[in-house]
Design a protein around this nucleic acid. Structure first.
Length: 451
DNA sequence: TCTGGGGTCCTAGGACCC
DNA sequence: TCTGGGGTCCTAGGACCC
């Protein structure tokens, strides 16, 4: 472990010249697995789904030497690196490390914004009056992460999120001809370098430009950021809509107005699963939908939230997906209600092909206030006077409202299957025993793997 | 080689209200 | 009887990020 070699041929700039910092932990999930099992050290390790439909979520640098990359299908990864160890992933453990990581960043500044578990943006502006120098602060941050977590990281410093992220990418180790080349660890982008990067980068390097947008841009003859900068925003707007045009246009000039916003709250909670073997017919699909609804309900209650919108997603073997959603006039957080709505939504989707994925998600989230029953009923009287009888009346009203909502749904889409005979009270719901997590896709083929 | 699971944001069309 | 325009909410789909 030597998180040391900061690239500081430059003098430390002022905070105002490089107010945005981006940190990215190296090969995060794989690194945690190696820390917990030192016998893995030096071996090619990945975390992901090992089955035919699994993909790699995180690969150690040893694995990257063989060309293994995250998002790569596991079968491909194994072909390139037969000795690759693929582990299923333990999210609780990663979350623990992530909390410790955030705590270290928080010691530098509370103005930080996590991006997934292993990255954060931080805004150092408020440190200017303390005369903090960004390069020194970044080096110290990286050192602490290495010392206290045992995980290497890359830190980028720039005038905005765009450059900070590009910089942290350049701070990382790289693989060249199968050989691991260490990165500088900390990179600050000075103004001259910003210009150079804008002249060199492909459009694909910009935030928000993925494969689809990159291809559309290329068809317009715009493969590089330099070319993109020659096109005016109005032209881009006609092709990509106002939001994307504004963002592309700004980034092509090196501008990025996105603020570092701490304390962002989740807008949805969902759960989905790709099956090792695709499902045919409503019976099997509905069982899975119901199970996912249970997971979502528990997550809602754990976070003391209720959802007003329930959505279902069904993906078919040809990868095309159908999404259905229903907004309710009251909030729900129990599996009976969520499963009832989710099942009705799923039943409205014509199943003309085998189903490879089913998912349920909850959105329009609100904090749960007191008894959830009152949300639907609003008894105007003081909550403490809510009698058992009133509560039961309220629960009944709630169920009635739910039934209406589901009836609406069935009317809207026409019934496509025979009723399952399920009632909507949570007591009557038999949520299947939780199966093992399939965090990164099915790990076994064919079996119904209960564990 | 053929694509997971957790999310976010944007767009477009329709319903509804004023 | 037929009509405008703006705002808001909802739904469905698509693209993107880690």
């Amino acid at each position: 472990m030597k998180p040391s070699d900061t690239s500081s041929s430059v003098t430390d700039p002022s905070v105002l010249d490089a107010p945005v910092l981006h940190v990215d932990l190296d090969a995060f999930f794989a690194s945690v697995e190696i820390l917990d099992d030192p016998s893995l050290r030096g071996r090619p390790v990945a975390v992901g789904g090992a089955g035919e439909r699994g993909v790699i979520a995180s690969a150690s640098y040893e694995a990257r030497r063989f060309g293994v990359r995250s998002a790569m299908p596991s079968v491909v990864a194994l072909r390139q690196c037969p000795q690759l160890v693929i582990l299923p992933g333990r999210f609780d453990r990663y979350e623990e490390y992530s909390r410790r990581f955030h705590a270290i960043v928080n010691d530098l500044t509370p103005i930080y914004e996590p991006l997934g578990l292993d990255e954060v943006f931080a805004d150092l502006t408020s440190l200017a009056r303390l005369d903090v120098r960004p390069l020194a602060a970044a080096a110290e941050l990286r050192q602490r992460i290495g010392d206290e977590l045992g995980i290497l990281s890359g830190v980028g410093l720039g005038p905005n999120k765009l450059f900070a992220k590009l910089a942290s990418k350049r701070s990382k180790p790289t693989v060249r001809d199968g050989v691991l080349v260490p990165g500088p660890g900390v990179v600050y982008v000075d103004p001259a370098t910003r210009e150079r990067w804008l002249n060199e980068l492909p459009v694909r390097a910009l935030w928000g430009v993925g494969p689809a947008t990159a291809e559309r841009l290329e068809r317009l003859g715009l493969s590089s950021v330099r070319e993109l900068a020659t096109v005016d925003e109005a032209t881009l707007r006609s092709h990509f809509g106002p939001a994307m045009a504004a963002s592309l246009s700004a980034m092509a000039r090196g501008e990025d107005a996105r603020a570092v916003s701490p304390h962002r709250v989740n807008k949805s909670i969902g759960h989905e699963e790709t099956f090792a073997t695709s499902l045919v017919g409503y019976d099997d699909v509905l069982v899975q939908i119901r199970r996912h609804a249970g997971v979502v309900a528990r997550a809602l209650r754990d976070s003391s939230q209720v959802a007003h919108t329930i959505s279902v997603v069904i993906r078919f073997d040809d990868l095309h997906a159908v999404r259905r959603s229903q907004t309710l006039s009251f909030g729900v957080d129990d599996e009976g209600a969520i499963a009832g709505v989710a099942e009705a939504l799923a039943e409205s989707v014509p199943l003309n092909a085998a189903v490879r994925l089913a998912g349920v998600s909850a959105s329009s989230l609100r904090a749960r206030e007191g008894s959830q029953v009152q949300l639907a009923f609003d008894l105007s009287s003081a909550p403490e006077t809510l009698s058992v009888e009133a509560a039961s009346r309220a629960a009944q009203a709630n169920r009635a409202a739910l039934r209406d909502a589901i009836d609406d749904l069935r009317q809207r889409f026409g019934r496509s299957v025979i009723a399952q005979g399920s009632d909507l009270t949570s007591a009557e719901v038999h949520v299947e025993r939780q199966r093992g997590s399939h965090a990164f896709g099915p790990s076994t083929e064919g079996s119904s793997d209960t564990q």
